[in-house]
Amino acid sequence: MRTRLVILSCVFFLFAIVVQAVETMSFRIGMRSIQFRNLPEQRILISQDCFKSGKLSCLAYSAVSKVSLKRFEGESYGGMNPGSIACSKSASGSVVIGIDSQRNERSFCEFKDGSLIDTGTLNYYARKNDSDR
């Protein structure tokens, strides 16, 4: 009985952490308003449609493990956003600009299946992948 209680408490505790860690954000991209989920621990901001049955499954999420900036270092001039370069050159996506309620901008990488991911996330994982390889 005591063990069950401990296990249940742990499950509840973990659930609370997961719920707390997932934030939703909304950006206007052109005339569309798109919902995103933020996973700060993993440094991922990804479109809501990538969450299917509690799992992440879309082209935007697949790009995270493959993206790289190694071959494109020489192509960055004038302080280009490195995440944009990772998106268009390495991940075969196209960059779109999202606007928040305060008129601030944030670029996203859009894929053929319509899924979107923050270019900052791509920049982070491109550097991580390059240093791990």
């Binding site: 991922i44 956003n81 490195p82 601030n104 670029s107 923050d118 270019t119 900052g120 996330t121 920049n123």
Partner: peptide, 8 residues
């Protein structure tokens, strides 16, 4: 000028 993302 890389947007509001902090993951950069």
């Amino acid at each position: 000028s890389w947007g509001t993302s902090c993951y950069n």
